[in-house]
């Protein structure tokens, strides 16, 4: 049971990180490779602020969330939107956005590496995680917050994208941006809002993960980026519920490999498993089959 709890905690960490990325990729079609840097730099600003003055848990989280939203919004405004405007077709835009994201990511990464000399950084917070005993299982208060946040936001986003008018509009953009625009969907405003929301989620993940791990390094975001990419593909692009399931499947596979004491095989076995699942279901666990019209 303790292992199951570890799976849920690790899966929730992955989920919090992957949700923002899945939201923009699955709806407005932007594969944002700057998401990891946004995550890291949000936490880094939290670190800089708390270095000046000790803060409780919630203000630190609030700082990171706001910084994450601001970075993502600026990325959309200054990088992705101009790329979209200047690209002749969707395929060219996607490729340029991908490269643009990598370029954008390099800036906060270099800044944080320069400031920290790539040493780990954390928060100077009055919050101190406590270990709870729940039915004989050990659970820290931070883990509990991560599990609740991950699941609540994951389910909330799934419902919002499926049921709300804005969610419908977003999905319409994902299917056919030009037709959606013709139907009155303000693509620019929605894309801007979606990116800001995704950035806020990256900031939330950055703050919570830093509290959970004690410290992160400037490169931590890059490592999570690959896992998030795998989770979204496994769950099925465009399906928020798929992302939720994908996160826990990856965490479960990793924990299983670790418990068998094959620690160096974690990535190989986990990603191998994902590969096998994708062989059987190329569209991912909950993805819809692509329909090509000629």
């Amino acid at each position: 049971m303790q292992d199951l709890l570890n799976v849920v905690t690790l899966g929730s960490i992955y989920l919090l990180f992957a949700l923002g990325m899945a939201l923009v990729w699955g709806t407005i079609g932007i594969l944002n490779f700057a998401h990891g840097a946004t995550f890291m730099f949000s936490a880094f600003v939290g670190h800089l602020v708390t270095r000046e003055t000790e803060l409780p848990f919630l203000p630190v989280v609030a700082v990171s969330v706001l910084v994450g939203a601001a970075i993502a919004a600026l990325t959309q405004l200054l990088a992705f939107q101009p790329i979209l405007k200047r690209s002749k077709n969707q395929h060219a835009a996607e490729m340029r956005i991908l490269i643009g994201g990598i370029g954008v990511a390099a800036i906060p990464l270099a800044l944080a590496q320069h400031q920290t000399r790539s040493s780990p950084f954390g928060f100077n917070s009055s919050y101190d995680a406590e270990v709870m005993d729940v039915f004989g299982l050990r659970l820290t208060t931070t883990s509990a917050v991560i599990i609740v946040s991950g699941l609540a936001i994951g389910i909330g986003l799934t419902v919002w994208v499926r049921r709300s008018r804005q969610g419908l509009a977003l999905r319409a953009i994902g299917v056919d941006a030009e037709t959606a625009a013709g139907m009155g969907v303000n693509r620019t405003a929605l894309a801007f809002g979606t990116m800001a929301t995704a950035g806020a989620l990256a900031g939330l993940a950055g703050a919570l993960l830093t509290f959970q791990l004690g410290a992160i390094a400037p490169e931590t975001g890059d490592q999570l980026l690959i896992k998030a990419f795998a989770i979204i593909v496994l769950g099925g692009l465009g399906s928020m519920a798929g992302t939720v399931i994908g996160a826990y499947v990856l965490a479960g596979a990793e924990t299983l490999v670790l418990n068998l004491n094959y620690g160096t095989w974690v990535d190989a076995v986990s990603f191998g498993l994902i590969f096998l699942i994708l062989l059987a279901r190329p569209q991912g666990l909950l993805g819809r089959k692509e329909v090509r019209r000629t």
Binding site: N6, T9, S143, Q212, L213, T220, Q223, L258, N261, G263
Partner: peptide
């Protein structure tokens, strides 16, 4: 003896 990877970030399982 517990080996981990460069990408391992969570040590809850190993710690337990």
């Amino acid at each position: 003896s517990l080996p981990v990877q460069m990408t391992t970030q969570d040590f809850a399982g190993q710690s337990q």
